[in-house]
Nucleic acid binder design. Structure first.
Lengths: 109, 109
DNA sequence: CCGTATCCGAAAGGATACTG
DNA sequence: CAGTATCCTTTCGGATACGG
């Protein structure tokens, strides 16, 4: 919840605060494909370390964008998925994907 | 231009590399409204320092997203505007703005 | 007005080792 | 497997001073 005092009322800045960094956007991209385990995310996101992945997942969970489900099994199994709120960000990631696709096509030698 | 060797072919990552940080996104938001002078951007983007604004503008110019036009007058006058490529990112920023607007509405007390 | 240069502290992120 | 803890390096970004 936001109080009126916290409001600069800037929609773009609000969105940027939640997903405006490289790693969160790439995590979003993966989770839009469906539920993923920790290791699946780690392998799918090139260059991310375990530490940074964990940190970002925690923040995103805290912000209500993703859900974390841990199973009480050995070895451990943890699944991450988008919450309803997170899924509502789909158009943004799709826009970025579409634009990137066109850009690559244009600039490919 | 991209060579085939540089290609992980990930559209989202490509987009993220160009505009996937807070300041660039906020600069984009301002320039989508139209051509702006340096000082206008500085005032419009809350919390950005002159140094960081300059650095990001340089990178965006280098990436071909924005145009810089300096007038040979005293005192100096420099105008920044979106290039055609930059303007093609409009749907992404608009998506972010739309989402942010809905989010604020939902969560406002 | 529109920067650049320099310094410095804060924050992000990598590497490694260890654990339930 | 899915983390946590620690250390360390790199990058980001604020403050200030100065210049065309």
């Amino acid at each position: 919840m936001l109080s009126k005092e916290e409001l600069p009322f800037c929609p773009v800045a609000t969105t940027v605060d939640l997903i405006g960094n490289k790693w969160k956007l790439l995590i979003m991209r993966e989770l839009l494909k469906g539920t993923k385990r920790f290791n699946e995310l780690h392998k799918a996101i090139e260059g991310i370390s375990q530490k940074v992945l964990t940190e970002n997942l925690r923040k995103m969970e805290e912000d209500g964008i993703i859900n974390r489900k841990a199973y009480a099994v050995v070895p451990p199994k943890v699944e991450y998925s988008l919450s309803e709120l997170g899924d509502s960000l789909r158009p943004i990631i799709n826009s970025m994907s579409d634009w990137g696709t066109a850009y690559i096509k244009e600039n490919l030698i």
